[in-house]
Amino acid sequence: MVLVQSMLLAGRSLRFFTRNPQHVIAAFAFPLVLMFTQLAVLGELVAEVSGQPYVARIAPLVVLSTAAFGSAITAAAVYRDLHSGLLTRVRAMPVSPASLFGGRLFGDLLRILAVASLTTAVAFIPGFRFSAGLLAAVGFFGVVVLFGTLSTAVGILVGTFGRSEESVQAALSAPATLLFILSSGFVPLETFPGFLQPLVWANPLSSATQALIGLSHGGPVAVPLLVTLAWTAGVGILSVVLVARRYRELSRP
């Protein structure tokens, strides 16, 4: 029952998204502009340092960045749901509270996958390839879903505790930008100053990007995948506990 309700609410969130042309254009155009801008500015320089085409590094990072930057959209949508009367309607119907957040999670994961698929397809133009085979390509999008779950969980958590729609968006936009810049997908880990390297290595965007690089271009996969799994499990559990507590507070008469 919860799964069915979640799927129905996921459809609702997708309809809201597709009916907003500004959000649709931004969601699909932003990663493409970001990717080609970085290729033009840093492509040759980073390729000389890393010994591999820069598109093999920046394309996976940009694919994941759609989820990281999209967490602000998630947070704003969750805030609207909780403060626009939907919460009252849910309490008055035989609808599980878990389906409200499950629907948001499933809907946003579908949006993330759609944007990631388009970005990956366009990345083939400047030379991105799945050199590790079909199974690795499937795993590539599995990691996208995993990191998308992490980003969406953060968005749901911030949106649940937010004080205004603008504040929750602002609270996530700056951290997402910082994670992007301090990522080993942006430039190789060894090019960062020594004191920053542990922080860059622990960055969840770095570990997920490294897993995608390994699954597409070749390289280590196990360790970055385990780090990404640990981040997703930790943030997911924390989000479930805190969101459930906050929901009970908001549901009190």
Rank of each mutant, 00 (worst) to 15 (best):
M93N: 09
A202M: 15
M1Q: 11
V63I: 13
E166K: 13
R246G: 12
M93R: 10
V221Y: 04
L110W: 08
V240W: 04
L150S: 03
W201A: 14
R111G: 06
G133Q: 05
V78M: 05
R248Y: 10
P188E: 06
F161K: 15
A98T: 12
G70L: 09
G155D: 01
L45C: 05
T152A: 12
S6M: 01
L179N: 00
Q5T: 05
R111P: 05
L182C: 07
R246A: 15
Y54S: 00
V46R: 09
L100Y: 01
A47K: 12
P21H: 03
Y54D: 08
S96P: 11
A230I: 02
Y54N: 00
W201K: 14
S216E: 12
A136P: 03
V95M: 12
A68L: 15
V138W: 03
I58N: 04
L226V: 03
L135Q: 10
L32M: 11
S183Q: 06
V221C: 06
A72G: 04
A75F: 05
P193V: 00
P224R: 00
A222V: 14
V90G: 08
A230T: 04
V90D: 01
Y79A: 06
F16Q: 15
Q210S: 11
P97I: 02
I213P: 00
S167P: 00
A202I: 11
L172G: 03
Q52T: 14
R252M: 11
A77L: 14
L3D: 09
T191H: 03
S50L: 08
V33C: 14
M35S: 05
L34E: 09
L238N: 07
A59V: 01
T232A: 15
F195I: 10
V95T: 14
N203L: 01
A211H: 04
S71E: 07
